[in-house]
Design a protein around this nucleic acid. Structure first.
Length: 259
DNA sequence: CAAATGGTCGGCATTACCTCA
DNA sequence: GCTGAGGTAATGCCGACCATT
C-alpha cells in the first residue's frame, strides 16, 4: 500500500516513487485557483524536461510527452481502455502545442478504441482509489503540477485525476447537503415543538387573565409588566429582585419607558 | 486605460457503464 | 439470464478568472 503525502507528491514529478519529495506550502482553494493559471507558463516545460534519472521517471516522462500512447504496466491496465476515449478536451498541460492540437483533433473522435469496440468504463483499483482518497483529505483541489504528478503516480491521465476530484467534490457536497438537511429537519421539529408549548402557555395565561382579577392573577412572588406582559418570578430567581423592583416602579411612573 | 478575445479552471447536470442484489 | 437500483467515471456546458492584444 502506497501512502504518500500529497504536498510531497505535488511538488515534483521527479519524486514519484522515489521518496525524495520536497515539502510544498499548503495552498488554499483560492490559492489553487489563482495559481493554476500562473503555473501554466512554466509547468509544461518543467515536466517535459524531467531529466530521467532512472527507469521510473523514464516511464512517467513517456506518458507525459505522449499522452495518447499508453504505457504498458500493471497499473495502467485499467487506464489503457481510455487510449482513444472521447475526452472532450484534455485541459491539462504537458504535451506542448503539437500535442494540444493533436488532442483537439483526437478528443472528438468516437467512443471506440483501436479495435472499434465501444469504450469501456474504467474502474479504479482499490489502490488507486485509496491514494486518491488520502490526497483528497488533504486537498480537495489540485493544481496542474499536483494533478500531473498524481496522474503519473497512478498511471492515469491527468484528466482522469481531475475528473475523479470533480466527482469526489460533488459527492462530498451531496453528503454535506444531506447532513445539513437532516439537521434542519431536526431543528424544525424542535422549533415546532417549542412553538406548540408556547402557544399552549399563552392560552393558559389568557384564560387565567379572563377568570381572575388582575391583582390576584399572579402569585406574590411573580411580577408581570403590564406593557409587555413579561413575567419575572422573584422567588425562583432572587437575582432579579432588583430588576423587578426597578421595573415595578417604572410601571406606574413611566410604563412605556420600561418596555 | 478599457474593451475584446482566448485559454483554463471548477461547478454542475447529465449520460453511460458497471456491479450487485 | 434478466432487471432495476445504486455507484461512479466520463461528458458537455457554463460562468469566472486571468493574460494578452
Amino acid at each position: 500500500m502506497v501512502s504518500v503525502g500529497f504536498d510531497d507528491i505535488c511538488n515534483t514529478a521527479l519524486g514519484l516513487g522515489l521518496g525524495c519529495f520536497v515539502k510544498q506550502e499548503n495552498l488554499t482553494q483560492l490559492d489553487h485557483r489563482q495559481q493554476n493559471n500562473k503555473e501554466h507558463d512554466h509547468f509544461l516545460p518543467s515536466l517535459l524536461s524531467l531529466g530521467s534519472s532512472d527507469d521510473t521517471n523514464q516511464s512517467a516522462t513517456t506518458i507525459d510527452a505522449g499522452r495518447h500512447h499508453q504505457q504498458a504496466s500493471s497499473l495502467s491496465a485499467a487506464a489503457s481502455s481510455f487510449s482513444n476515449s472521447s475526452v472532450k478536451k484534455e485541459r491539462d498541460l504537458g504535451g506542448g502545442d503539437q500535442d494540444l492540437e493533436l488532442e483537439r483533433v483526437c478528443s472528438r473522435v468516437s467512443d471506440e478504441d483501436e479495435d472499434g469496440n465501444p469504450r469501456k468504463k474504467l474502474r479504479l483499483t482499490k489502490q488507486q482509489s485509496s491514494i486518491l482518497e488520502d490526497i483528497f483529505k488533504e486537498h480537495i483541489t489540485l493544481n496542474p503540477k499536483q494533478k500531473q504528478a498524481l496522474a503519473e503516480q497512478l498511471n492515469l491521465r491527468p484528466r482522469q485525476v481531475e475528473v475523479w476530484f470533480q466527482n469526489r467534490r460533488a459527492r462530498t457536497k451531496l453528503k454535506q447537503t444531506e447532513v445539513e438537511g437532516e439537521l434542519l429537519k431536526k431543528c424544525y421539529q424542535a422549533l415546532t415543538e417549542e412553538n406548540k408549548k408556547l402557544h399552549k402557555e399563552v392560552q393558559e395565561l389568557k384564560a387565567l387573565k379572563l377568570t381572575t382579577p388582575y391583582s390576584m392573577q399572579l402569585p406574590a412572588t411573580v411580577t408581570m409588566c403590564p406593557c409587555c406582559e413579561r413575567v419575572v418570578n422573584v422567588s425562583e430567581n432572587p437575582s432579579r429582585d432588583a430588576f423587578a423592583l426597578e421595573h415595578k416602579s417604572q410601571f406606574f411612573s413611566h410604563p412605556s419607558a420600561a418596555c
